[in-house]
Computed example of a mutant assay.
Amino acid sequence: MAIWNLGSINADMVYAMPHLPAAGETLAASSLDRFLGGKGANMSVAAVRAGSEVHHIGAVGPDGHWAVERLQSYGVGIEHVTQINTPTGHAIIAVEPDGENQIILFPGSNRALSQEQLKQALSKAKPDDILVMQNETSLQAEAAQLGRQLGLRVCYAAAPFDADAVQAVLPFLDFLILNEVEAAQLEQAIGKPPGAIGVRDVIITLGAKGARHIDGDTGTTQEVPALPVTAVDTTGAGDTFTGYVLASLDQGLAMEKAMATASRAAALMVTRHGTADVIPELTEVQGARF
């Protein structure tokens, strides 16, 4: 099987800061790094490094050739990544010493995908392949509906969170991943807890407390604890978790095992500075000691 990712591609400009800037504050950074990023690119790289075949559906501007080359060098399928005239998306990320971050996001070409591009890409997918989306591109609802029609396992990572965007894709979802704050926001918006929204599988990530899976059919829950590490940068950890979960499920692992593997990958990720470029390989995840 394979994973099809309608996903963002960004240049992540990461500034190391003594603390996160307050409103009106001018603050000097101690370093600057440019990484391949975007929630979509992060998930594609994570899923490839977890051992799955991944096809990325996205767009970059004239300034984004380097990002496509880097995706390809990591093993991600880039035949459905298009170059257009809109500038490539980018993120300005401030990271303080304890790993907390603050992000300014410019969507750019990620919001300029075409219906034709989407249809052409998913025409190559096979039933039971996985389709994943995040709220950083155009055509999310259209992709979810088409994925359902084609018999794909449709997954939505609900970030950056927007209640309307989630509700637009809900009727077509098999799998929803969101964090604890987003879960509360969704419940407030629709008046139902995550386990009662009609989605077969829901994962709520809980940060340092781990992650919870809710079976939408039975209402049963299972939790996987987080691993004890010292975080230096939490950027991309949730995307790493999602990519590893999906790849593990794609390879036939049970949900509990998939979440445990993803938790290990995310734990390693927060010990590193960067985004897609530093996502751990499966051999590192399997061999890590915590």
Rank of each mutant, 00 (worst) to 15 (best):
T271Q: 15
L249W: 07
M13V: 10
C155T: 12
Q117R: 05
D162C: 01
D201E: 15
M259D: 03
R34A: 13
L105P: 01
K192L: 14
Q115N: 07
M43C: 12
V229Y: 10
G77V: 09
I9K: 03
S114Q: 11
R70Y: 10
A157C: 05
S31N: 10
A226V: 13
K124H: 11
N42K: 05
L206S: 12
A22Q: 14
M255E: 13
H90G: 10
L150N: 01
T220C: 11
C155N: 04
Q115V: 04
I197G: 12
E281P: 00
D63K: 05
I103A: 14
R289W: 05
V48W: 09
S109L: 04
A144W: 02
D98P: 00
T86F: 00
T242F: 08
V54F: 03
S123H: 09
D63F: 01
K192C: 05
M13R: 13
A266R: 02
P18C: 04
L150Q: 01
L227K: 14
V45A: 08
V95G: 08
F35Q: 11
G58I: 04
K124T: 08
D33R: 08
L118G: 07
K126M: 09
I92K: 10
H213C: 09
E69N: 11
T88Y: 07
G274Y: 05
R34E: 15
K257H: 10
E96M: 10
G37I: 09
M133Y: 01
G210Y: 12
P18Y: 05
T283C: 02
G51T: 09
G58V: 03
A23N: 12
V48Q: 13
V95W: 06
G40E: 09
G64P: 07
L170S: 01
T271H: 11
A158C: 02
P228A: 08
D98W: 02
A144C: 06
V202C: 14
Q120M: 09
Y156G: 02
P280L: 05
A189C: 04
G99D: 03
A29D: 01
W66G: 04
F35P: 05
I197F: 08
Q286C: 03
D162P: 00
G287E: 03
